[in-house]
Simulated assay, not measured.
Amino acid sequence: MKYLLLLVLLISPLIYATEQPIKGYGNYYSVPEHDEINDATVFKIAFDVGDGAEKGKKNNSMNSLARFINMHVAHGVKPKKIQLALVVHGSASVDVLANSEYKQRFNIDNKNQNLIKQLLNSNTMVYVCGQSATHFKVAPEQLIKGVKMSLSAMTAHAQLQQQGYTLNPF
Rank of each mutant, 00 (worst) to 15 (best):
S91N: 10
S150H: 13
D95W: 01
K137G: 02
M71I: 07
S132Y: 00
F136C: 11
N63T: 10
K78R: 12
P140S: 13
H72E: 05
V128Q: 02
A85S: 08
S91H: 08
N123A: 03
I108R: 03
F106V: 00
G76R: 07
V88E: 06
A92L: 09
F68G: 00
N121A: 14
H72R: 12
L84A: 13
H89N: 11
V77A: 04
C129I: 09
L97S: 03
V96Q: 04
P79L: 07
L115K: 11
V128C: 02
K111W: 01
N114R: 14
S100L: 11
A133T: 12
N99L: 02
N60E: 14
K103T: 15
G90T: 06
C129A: 09
S64F: 12
G76V: 09
V138Y: 09
V138N: 06
D95I: 10
A74H: 05
D109E: 12
N63R: 06
E101Q: 13
N123D: 08
P140E: 11
N114T: 14
N59E: 07
V138G: 03
N123H: 07
I69F: 01
K137W: 00
L84H: 04
A133V: 12
K80T: 06
M125D: 13
S91A: 13
N70V: 06
M125C: 07
M62S: 02
T124N: 08
N107G: 08
Q131Y: 08
S100C: 06
K137A: 12
G76A: 09
K103F: 12
H72P: 13
V147L: 12
D109I: 00
V77P: 04
M125E: 14
Q83S: 04
S61K: 15
F68W: 03
M62E: 03
A139E: 15
A133Y: 12
L151R: 13
G90S: 08
N123I: 02
Q83I: 08
N114M: 10
Q83A: 00
V77H: 03
V128P: 07
V94N: 04
K145V: 14
N107F: 09
K145Q: 15
N114Q: 14
V138H: 08
Q113I: 13
N110R: 04
G76H: 05
N110A: 01
H75V: 02
Q142T: 10
S122K: 07
A92F: 06
G90L: 01
K103L: 14
D95E: 08
H89K: 02
V87I: 11
K111G: 03
L151M: 14
N63I: 10
V87Q: 06
E101C: 05
L65S: 07
R105P: 03
V138D: 04
G90K: 03
Q118Y: 01
A66S: 10
H135G: 14
Y127I: 11
L115W: 06
V88Q: 04
I69K: 01
F68N: 08
V126S: 01
F68A: 10
V96R: 05
H72W: 05
V96H: 06
H75A: 09
P79S: 05
L84E: 05
K78Y: 05
K111H: 09
N107D: 12
V128G: 02
